[in-house]
Amino acid sequence: MSEPITMQRVKERLKIPLMLGPAVAVIVLLFGGGLLVGLGQSLGYFPAIGLTEFSFDAYRSVLTDPNFLRSLWLTFRIALVATVLSSVLAVGFALVLRQKFGGSRLATFLFQIPIPVPHLVAASGIILLITQSGLIARFGAAAGLMEVPADFPALVFDKAGIAIILTFLWKEVPFVGLVVLAVLQSVGPQYEEQARTLGANARQRFFNVLLPLIMPGIMSTSIIIFAFTFANYEIPLLLGVRFPSTLPVVAFRQYQDPDLGLRPEAMAISIVLAVVAILLLIAYRRLARYAVK
């Protein structure tokens, strides 16, 4: 038995698709379209310069380049350290800032400041602080710990990527912190109070009760942050050593090269970057789910 088709029913059916349509269209057409073109070029399909045959040449040359692996490792290491440190520090700050104490509102406001500050400005401030002639080095000199700038460790343009990580931390700790703070607020103090009357001390309450409750929030934000830092271009370009560079920097350098023949390689690097990111995030989710169980 089919029910009669009325205007009301048709409207009801179309309601959700119409609401979602525009947003989905932007993502599918722009983001998806861009991905597809990029994928095509990485596979050697680039009619503008006369390439119409599909091949894995670009991938072959990228993956066999020893420098590629070094860059991949660097990119991964920076993103991992930035993500883990931001999450841990953010939870710590959120635990303090959820308490009410004299000045807690001011402290929370200060904590929010990095949220609207663009990454480039953050980098700008960090540079002035931690270069070998930066403000911290001057503090060191004033305290008699060092004499000339060269005595200060090279934290910018260094192989470890310390300046890059610091910039990411400055930006992301407040972001994760505010999300954790929001989750803590919605959970409230009640579960901890219950645990307390059942005999759980502060450490047991944190690890057995609070952490499992805020874990989903931490997982979400750490996915956002890892994906962001893994793919960021301008911060490593600005604060990192020229060699080895992170993968986005390498890819973009290749892309902007006047030699259009390097384009497929630039695209291949970016595709590999994206695939690695997705695989890592899937593995992370699986792992986290397993850990929760």
């Binding site: 993502i27 861009g34 970057l273």
Partner: peptide, 30 residues
């Protein structure tokens, strides 16, 4: 609530999960 909701959610989240560099370069060409 509707069928395929989680798929749509994932789809809309793609740009902050998948590194956007390749898509940006592709869009540049388009």
């Amino acid at each position: 609530e509707f069928r395929g909701k989680s798929t749509i959610e994932w789809l809309l989240m793609m740009p902050i999960i998948v590194p956007a560099l390749v898509a940006t370069m592709g869009i540049h060409q388009i």
